[in-house]
Design a binder for these strands. Structure first.
Ligand SMILES: [Mn+2]
Ligand SMILES: [Mn+2]
Ligand SMILES: [Zn+2]
Ligand SMILES: [Zn+2]
Lengths: 140, 140
DNA sequence: CCAGTAAATTAGAATCGTTCTAAAATATTG
DNA sequence: CAATATTTTAGAACGATTCTAATTTACTGG
């Protein structure tokens, strides 16, 4: 799926999710979906919007990220206890997390196999299996 | 294991980590290590201490959790972006996370196999592979 | 179009988990 | 015990996030 297609799909899904296509949401959707997969925090996206001369408040960025996530356009990735990270790649995949940089990097889902998972606790069902491979820089 | 023995073990662990065995640390170590493996947050441990009539500040609980972690007595588990969770089980293992309850449950490491991990990004090495199986309650 | 209504945006306050500060208390060493 | 280093602590500060309530914007039916 190319970028233009993804952006078109985002607008489509906004409508399907009954989210009004406001100036702010369109601009954020474009930043998020028009140039390949992204991992953003509320603050990085807000900074990016301001740099692109899109006037939008931080509160609206938070609102949009959560609405987009609820609509299935984004996925939240938990990497550290301090900030939320949002991923435009909603397909099944895992992440490298570079500790020094706080940077995420996708691992194609297909390459990783998880076997031998026991049954979930009684009365529950598996929603998602999150794999974070924490890596650190090495000298050399 | 009786009280006296537990005290001895707590002191031993703290000494090995070059941490002075203060009243607060001993009490927290006893709560953490004397009754099987635990998953705690700073706040749950603080509440527990107060309930056990151990006078200790929340700041000291945070300090202790971090010192214990640095000393290898605890491991930090990231489950959501809002709070830090500490695990007395420092062996290689994974977790079920019950979303409604915010509860962690151990998965024995031996049962799970992860294969097909690609090489880490250039200039980095793998520190740890975190697996969180997110489960939700189902009716029935 | 327009008016009426619902939804969204916003600045700023509030909240919450966590960390920091700096002063008092405690442990260790000699 | 004195001298020193470490620890504890209350409370302030912090940073990410959420909330509030007033304003603005989008939609709908006429
Ligand atoms: Mn959230
Ligand atoms: Mn926080
Ligand atoms: Zn990703
Ligand atoms: Zn565990």
């Amino acid at each position: 799926m190319n970028d233009h297609r993804r952006y078109a799909r985002a607008i489509e899904l906004l409508r399907a999710a009954k989210l009004r296509p406001t100036r702010q949401r369109m601009a954020l959707a474009r930043l998020l979906f028009a140039t390949g997969h992204r991992h953003v925090t509320a603050e990085t996206l807000h900074d990016e919007a301001l740099a692109a001369h899109v006037r939008v408040s931080l509160a609206t960025v938070y609102n949009a990220l959560h609405r987009f996530t609820a609509a299935g356009l984004l996925r939240e990735v938990v990497v550290d206890g301090q900030r939320s990270c949002f991923d435009t790649n909603t397909t099944d995949h895992q992440h490298f997390f570079i500790e020094e940089e706080g940077q995420l990097q996708d691992i194609p889902a297909a390459s990783v196999q998880i076997t031998g998972l026991p049954a979930p606790p009684p009365g529950t069902s598996i929603r998602r299996v999150d794999v974070i491979v924490r890596v650190a820089k090495v000298s050399g």
